[in-house]
Computed example of a mutant assay.
Amino acid sequence: MRSIKILGTGCPKCKTMFNNVNKALDNKGVKANVEKIEDIQEIMKYNVLSTPVLVIDEEIKIKGKAGDVSEIESFL
């Protein structure tokens, strides 16, 4: 099962990213463990300066913007 993390402090873009990830998973029929990380100390471990960040299987795919559903599907 894939591991997906959304790093962000809860801003509107972070919430959009979370919703878009779930839509992309549904569209592709992919099962994944989706985790929303809002703790700033945890986010800093990924060495990123802007959120939201999409991490799939510990690899950063998107940072600083809410990826759209089709873009997220391309990573699945």
Rank of each mutant, 00 (worst) to 15 (best):
E71S: 06
G67E: 04
G64T: 12
K45D: 04
Y46I: 08
A24L: 12
K28R: 13
C14I: 11
I6D: 00
M1I: 12
G67L: 05
N33R: 11
N20D: 09
L76F: 15
I6P: 00
K31Q: 13
I4V: 13
V34L: 03
K65T: 13
N47Y: 07
L49M: 15
D57E: 10
F18P: 00
M1E: 08
E58A: 07
D26Y: 12
E58N: 15
V30C: 09
V21G: 02
E35S: 06
K13Q: 11
M44P: 02
Q41P: 00
I72V: 13
K15F: 00
P52L: 06
F75Y: 15
K61E: 03
G8K: 13
R2M: 15
K13W: 13
E42F: 04
S74D: 05
D26I: 12
F18G: 02
V30D: 12
L49E: 11
K45C: 03
D26Q: 14
G10M: 01
G8S: 11
I37L: 01
G8E: 11
I6F: 00
E73N: 10
G10N: 06
L54I: 11
M44C: 08
P12M: 03
K36V: 12
N22E: 10
I43G: 01
L54F: 10
S50G: 01
D57R: 09
K36H: 06
L54N: 05
L25A: 04
D68M: 09
D68V: 06
N27P: 01
N19E: 13
T16I: 15
K36M: 07
A66S: 14
L25Q: 05
L49V: 10
I6L: 08
K31R: 07
I60Q: 07
E42N: 06
K63R: 08
K13G: 00
I72Q: 06
K23D: 09
D68Q: 13
E58L: 01
